[in-house]
Design a protein around this nucleic acid. Structure first.
Length: 255
DNA sequence: ATGGCTTGAGTGTCAAGA
């Protein structure tokens, strides 16, 4: 089973690239973040014509998440149960006997921002909810844009990023608490090239200079991690005309 | 260079991303 995650930064703009990527890679499931469109405008017909089912939870302008799957998604749930959030950032579903959680973690803007406090509160609720989900679903994967670079090796210039959002100790603690629930960062289960990133700033020509961060992750429950045979970042879409600023992350499961 | 680019909203030029 092949599962993937991609922050597309507007599904409207990126739809041709998503359809092309589905055709090339034939994932069993693709989790999308930052749809930036209302459910009424979701390109359901185009996705279905490509041979995929879609479960989606979108809103106007910002946020929005979806799970595309070869087989129909079952038991679709939107949001974090028990956590009121007007921002649509989480959708989960069963696909092929695996519980998939697709998440778009808040950015936080800056350490002194209300958005940073929202991010930390959001992560606390997310973690508490995932603990309950893990108790119900042995085979669970959490895919998405975490907006956290877990370690300095996930940052092109740790000195320059010190004191900034995405790398702060409190965010890294929150990521550590997810791992403490029994979730494994699938990318780090395998030997990887140095300077592996999933996001590069549009403004500084960051991709060409590989000035990036690894902030998109696929975390796996213990029993699912035991079946994982590989995890890679696909740089190809980032080279396209009008790319998303994020690259897809792909995990292979021997199931 | 509290910048650089890309979106969406909506026709001016912000807000937000990371």
């Amino acid at each position: 089973m092949r599962i993937a995650s991609w922050n597309v930064n507007s599904l409207k703009v990126r739809l041709p690239q998503v359809l092309d990527w589905l055709a090339r890679h034939q994932p069993d499931a693709l989790c999308l973040q930052e749809l930036k469109l209302e459910d009424a405008n979701f390109p359901k017909a185009e996705i279905e014509a490509a041979g995929y089912f879609a479960a989606y939870y979108g809103q106007k302008t910002y946020n929005g998440v979806a799970i595309l799957s070869r087989k129909p998604a079952k038991d679709v749930a939107c949001g974090i149960a028990g956590f009121e959030d007007p921002q649509r950032r989480v959708i989960s579903a069963d696909v092929d006997g695996v519980r998939l959680v697709c998440a778009y973690v808040p950015n936080g803007q800056s350490l002194d921002s209300d958005k940073y406090r929202y991010k930390l509160g959001w992560l606390k609720a997310f973690s508490a909810w995932l603990e309950r989900e893990l108790a119900q679903h042995t085979r669970l994967a959490v895919l998405g844009d975490y907006n956290i670079a877990p370690e300095d090796r996930d940052v092109h210039d740790p000195k320059a990023w010190e004191g900034k959002v995405l790398v702060s100790p409190l965010e890294r603690d929150a990521f550590g608490r997810l791992k403490a629930l029994g979730l494994t960062d699938s990318f780090r289960m395998f030997e990887q090239p140095e300077k592996s990133y999933t996001w590069w700033d549009y403004r500084t020509n960051g991709f060409k200079r590989n000035l990036g961060l690894r902030i998109d992750h696929i975390l796996l429950s213990t029993s699912l991690a035991a079946t994982c045979t590989g995890c890679t970042i696909d740089l190809e879409p980032r080279r396209h005309e009008r790319p998303s600023d994020h690259a897809p992350v792909v995990a292979e499961l021997a199931t």
